[in-house]
Structures are given as structure tokens and as C-alpha cells.
Design a protein around this nucleic acid. Structure first.
Length: 570
DNA sequence: GCCGTTTTCGGCCCGACTGTTTTCAGTCG
């Protein structure tokens, strides 16, 4: 075993001990030993063989024993045990500037954070500021550090890539060289996670356009550059492709580069059956172009009604289009009210009145304030006294405004046995209870499913919040039988949330259509922790559309009276 | 965990800097 491996292992042990909060001097002893061995003149294997390691200053009885084990067997049980006891994500966090073992330990112990993704989400939810030794600036610095690290992972949250794509599109259009320019690919399909940005443009001067694309100020690297396709890496770490085609080819190319691959394959298959060849340059019957000036025409030529990009996943959309049964998908303007809003009463960044004011500005007719419940100590959950205070404030505000109604709500933790977080006396006074899992993620699938179904059975539960608990690119869903939960929601007439936080987008759209077909209703909720967060509903709309939802499937497209009626019938 | 003893327990490198905190803890080099 070479010296470097030994040194690395000793340093790692030091680190792990610090993360565990062991005696710092014990950790230092390992660092010291690592440095001692690093500068050792003699071969360490020889020292072990001749039992002279113990004579080296800094190596005592315990280290001598461990190093002997390591060098003779190639393994060190102590180190392996230690590694098992510390989540690997904590070690990764050391890469974040400003974070050392002590702060990481605090994050782990106080907030239960085990991965960088969870940490990022905790920053977004403003959870770090109240921890001992943390504050506004620390939280900001950590968040920025995470953004830097994330650049190199190759997968990106929809909203981050989308924002980049919009800027890029504006830049390209600003060159004056594009005739048409669109964001295509998985972004256009509103996938929750994307791996790159695809932009399609038409131009009379493609070469110049490619040059200007490659010299866009946000470009860090040019990966490939040609006449029809150029690939770059942006400063944000996201890859972007620009494809340029002739203007008459645009509709075909837009369809082709929007995908998905599976949808395209099925479409080509269908075309072939009709004796038509289909590719990014056109539809051809016996090599003669079938002229189409829009995507809609392409579908029509194949005897299909228009399929919105969000549905192009080859999950039944072609068959539905053939029957003329593509639904009129929900749009953001359909929303009349907003549920699931946090305020400074718990872990929100803005006050109750600020949230209400912003909701009014956005044109909503009702808003449900749903701070965390008392067991959510990590998020400043509300004890009964605080609830009473909040209700007083809500009543005052309701007197003041005649254009918006504020509902008294709560995002109640679902406790271990599936019960809600307050006594019946309190529960019955809420207008809206959203029941969500926030703790004890590690249960068996059967236990977790039963827990959530118990919450569904509770007559005060109206909406089931972020059903799978996933944090995109950060934390997988807990084990749960989503289909069983959906069936229970149907049976008890409960609403399922589409959590629109761009970090969650939960319920996953792949389940939504199943629930819709059963007749389950949804609510698109921003889970807003700031006034800006209210606008996250747009991401929920994208996911709802991917799940084939129409306005009538989503209760917050209804007038308040209708919503309250649904609630009262549960 | 190591070392060195006034020999078995108490001390172990530190200064700049930042951001908390209200006199200091944690990070970085």
C-alpha cells in the first residue's frame, strides 16, 4: 500500500471525526499523523514490518495498531465503520465555501440535512438563518456555493435552464439575424429535469448567427461548431445547442427537436404506415414535400389533432389525437385562487399582509395561508397561541379587503401514525388543512402508505401535500404506493396537491393522468415561502399540463363558493 | 488520539477574517 493511500485515509478519519463532533484534538491527532507519514523518509511498509512505526513521533499505541492493520490487510475496520455512520453528503458539503465540519454538524443535527440538495432547499425555505452561528449572509453564501458546485452535474432543474434559455433566445433574436426562434427540446415539453437547452432558429445568414451564438457573453466553452448545429457550455454549466434550418423547414424541425424521442419514433411509424417519410426537414410522400406552415398542420396531415408539446411523451397522446380527444389543457390564467402559502409566522420570508397584497396584485380572488403546524419545529411550526393570533390578523384583513378572501389554513404535519398535528377543537376551525409528510421518511412502503391513507381518512384533511416527498436532484421520494394513495383520495373525495415549487413538482406528472382518469381533483399550489414564490404556480401548471389536466380537474380554478362547497362535503 | 510529565491527566498552532453576537465561534490558509 502506498503512502498516499494511507495519508488519505488518515485525513478522512480526521474529517469524519470532526463531522461527528468528536474531540477536536483526536481529529487533529489523525491529521498530524497523516502529515508525519507524508514527510516520512522511510517506506511505511518497512516500518510496519520491522515494528518501528510506534517510534515515530505522533504515532502512539492506537494509531500504530490501526496503521498495522491497514497496511497488512489493506483495510481498516475502524474507518469503514466510521464512514457508515456519516452520510456521504456531509463530506460533499465541505466543498461548499464557508462550510466546515462544525456548521455541517449543526445542519445535520438541527435540520436533519444529509445531502447538498436538501441543503439548497433549506436555504430556499429560509431555514438556516435562525440556526446558532448562522445568519442571512451565511445562508446566502452557502446557497451561492451550491449553485457553483451544481454547474458540474449535467442535470438541471427546469426553472434554472428555462431562465437561461429565455435570456439566450432574447439575445439571438436581438442579433436581428433570426427569422424565427424557439426554445425546443425537453424545456418546451416542460420536463421537470433537463440536461440541456435546445434552441431552434431560422435565418438567412446561419453562419453569422452561429458565430454570434458562440460569442454570446454567457458562453464558457464552445463544444462543437458547424453550419446547422453549434453546442456550447454556458457559464451556468448548462449546455446549449443551437440548430439553424431553412425557414420553410421550421415547423418540421420544431416538431423533431421538441421530441420526445419516443413520441417522434411513434409519429414516424404512423407516417410510414401512411406511406409518408417524416424527418426534421419535412414530410415527404414519394420524395415530394407535403407543405406545412405550422406544427398543427403536420399533425393534421397525419390525421391527428394538434398535440401540445407537454403531452409528447408517447404516453397515449397519438391515440388520443387520432380520436380527437386531446384535452384543453389548463392554463395559468384559469387559476382564481392560491393555496399553500407560508408567512413569517413560520418559515416564510414575507409577512402575511405582504403575501396577501402580492396575491391581490396577481389577481387572485382567494388565498389560503397555510403555515407549518406545531410539530414542524425545524420550520417554526405554529403553537395554538400563535394560530389564534394569526386568525385574528386574518379576520382583520378580511374586513379590510373586498377583492380577496383570506382562508385560515394550515400545512399540518402527518404524524407517525397518520394523525394530524392539532386537537379536533383546533382542526375544525380551519378553512383548509393540507396534510404533508415532513419527517420520518424511512418507513417501509406499507407503513408509509398506511400513514398517508390514515391522513386522507381524517375528515379535516382537504388536500394531500407533496405526496411523494421528492426533492428534485436532491432526494428521492420516500417509499410509498402512490396508486393506493390515489385510490384512497378518490374514495374519500380528497384533493391531491401539485406542489409547484420548482424543487419539488410533486405529484410527479407520470401519476397525474392515472388520478385524473379516476376522477380525483387536484390543487396547484405554490408552497410559497416568499412573495416571489407565489409565481411558482406557473411551474405547477406545466406539470399539470404534462398530466393531461384541464381547468375542471383543478379546484383552484373554481370560484371560492364552489371550492368551499367541495371542502364542506369531505 | 498523542505526549510528557511536578508520572496517568491536562493540554494540544495560530492569525486574519467573516459574520455573528454583544465578546466570540467557525473557517481558511
Amino acid at each position: 500500500m502506498d503512502k498516499k493511500t494511507v495519508v488519505d485515509i488518515l485525513n478522512e478519519i480526521g474529517l469524519l471525526l470532526e463531522l461527528k463532533g468528536e474531540n477536536p484534538f483526536k481529529a487533529r491527532a489523525y491529521y498530524n499523523a497523516a502529515r508525519t507519514i507524508e514527510v516520512l523518509d522511510e517506506d511505511i511498509e518497512t516500518l510496519v514490518k520491522e515494528d518501528r512505526l510506534k517510534d515515530v513521533k505522533g504515532i502512539g499505541e492506537a494509531l500504530n495498531k490501526k496503521l498495522t492493520e491497514l497496511i497488512t490487510t489493506g483495510r481498516l475496520e475502524y474507518c469503514e465503520k466510521l464512514k457508515e455512520s456519516v452520510p456521504p453528503g456531509l463530506i460533499e458539503m465541505l466543498k461548499i465555501p464557508g462550510l466546515g465540519p462544525k456548521k455541517i454538524k449543526t445542519l445535520h443535527e438541527k435540520l436533519g440535512i444529509t445531502t447538498i440538495g436538501e441543503l439548497e432547499y433549506a436555504c430556499v425555505e429560509n431555514r438556516l438563518v435562525d440556526l446558532p452561528g448562522f445568519g442571512e449572509k451565511t445562508q446566502k453564501k452557502i446557497f451561492e456555493g451550491i449553485q457553483f458546485i451544481k454547474q458540474f452535474t449535467g442535470q438541471h432543474l427546469y426553472f434554472e435552464a428555462y431562465q437561461e434559455a429565455v435570456k439566450l433566445k432574447e439575445y439571438l433574436e436581438g442579433t436581428g439575424l433570426t427569422i424565427r426562434c424557439e426554445i425546443a427540446g425537453s424545456l418546451r415539453r416542460k420536463k421537470e429535469i433537463v440536461k440541456d437547452i435546445d434552441i431552434l432558429a431560422t435565418s438567412d445568414n446561419p453562419e453569422k448567427l452561429m458565430d454570434l451564438f458562440a460569442s454570446y457573453e454567457e458562453v464558457r466553452d464552445v463544444i462543437a461548431k458547424g453550419d446547422t448545429k453549434t453546442s456550447v457550455t454556458l457559464n451556468s454549466g448548462i449546455n446549449a445547442d443551437l440548430r439553424v434550418v431553412k425557414d420553410e423547414e421550421f415547423p418540421y424541425a420544431l416538431h423533431h427537436f421538441t421530441g420526445s424521442k419516443e413520441h417522434n419514433t411513434a409519429m414516424r411509424h404512423r407516417a410510414k404506415e401512411m406511406g409518408i417519410k417524416m424527418n426534421e426537414y419535412g414530410l415527404f410522400k414519394r420524395d415530394v414535400l407535403i407543405k406545412c406552415s405550422s406544427e398543427e398542420e403536420i399533425f393534421n396531415k397525419l390525421n391527428l389533432s394538434y398535440i401540445p408539446p407537454e403531452l409528447r411523451e408517447n404516453m397515449g397522446e397519438i391515440e388520443a389525437a387520432e380520436r380527437g380527444e386531446i384535452p384543453a389543457l389548463i392554463e395559468e390564467k384559469d387559476l382564481k385562487g392560491v393555496f399553500h402559502v407560508h408567512t413569517t409566522y413560520s418559515d416564510g420570508r414575507n409577512s402575511l399582509v405582504d403575501m396577501v397584497e402580492r396575491a391581490r396584485k396577481l389577481g387572485y380572488k382567494y388565498i389560503a395561508i397555510t403555515d407549518h403546524s406545531k410539530s414542524a419545529f425545524y420550520a417554526g411550526g405554529l403553537a395554538e397561541e400563535m394560530l389564534l393570533k394569526q386568525w385574528e390578523e386574518i379576520e382583520e384583513l378580511n374586513k379590510k379587503y373586498d377583492d380577496i378572501v383570506i382562508l385560515k389554513g394550515i400545512e399540518s404535519d402527518i404524524l407517525l401514525d397518520g394523525s394530524l398535528d392539532y386537537d379536533e377543537e383546533i382542526l375544525k376551525r380551519f378553512d383548509l388543512v393540507i396534510a404533508s409528510i415532513h419527517s420520518h421518511f424511512r418507513m417501509t412502503k406499507e407503513e408509509m402508505t398506511k400513514r398517508v391513507i390514515n391522513a386522507i381518512k381524517n375528515k379535516y384533511t382537504k388536500i394531500i401535500g407533496h405526496l411523494t416527498g421528492r426533492l428534485l436532484l436532491a432526494r428521492d421520494s420516500y417509499e410509498i404506493d402512490v396508486y393506493q394513495v390515489i385510490d384512497a383520495a378518490k374514495e374519500y373525495g380528497k384533493i391531491i396537491e401539485i406542489n409547484a415549487s420548482p424543487y419539488r413538482l410533486d405529484l410527479d406528472w407520470r401519476y397525474i393522468k392515472y388520478a385524473k382518469d379516476k376522477g380525483v381533483k387536484f390543487a396547484i399550489c405554490p408552497d410559497a415561502h416568499s412573495v416571489e414564490g407565489l409565481e411558482d404556480v406557473k411551474y405547477g401548471i406545466g406539470i399539470a399540463r404534462k398530466g393531461w389536466l384541464e381547468a375542471k380537474d383543478v379546484v383552484n380554478t373554481y370560484e371560492l363558493e364552489a371550492v368551499l362547497k367541495i371542502f364542506s362535503n369531505m
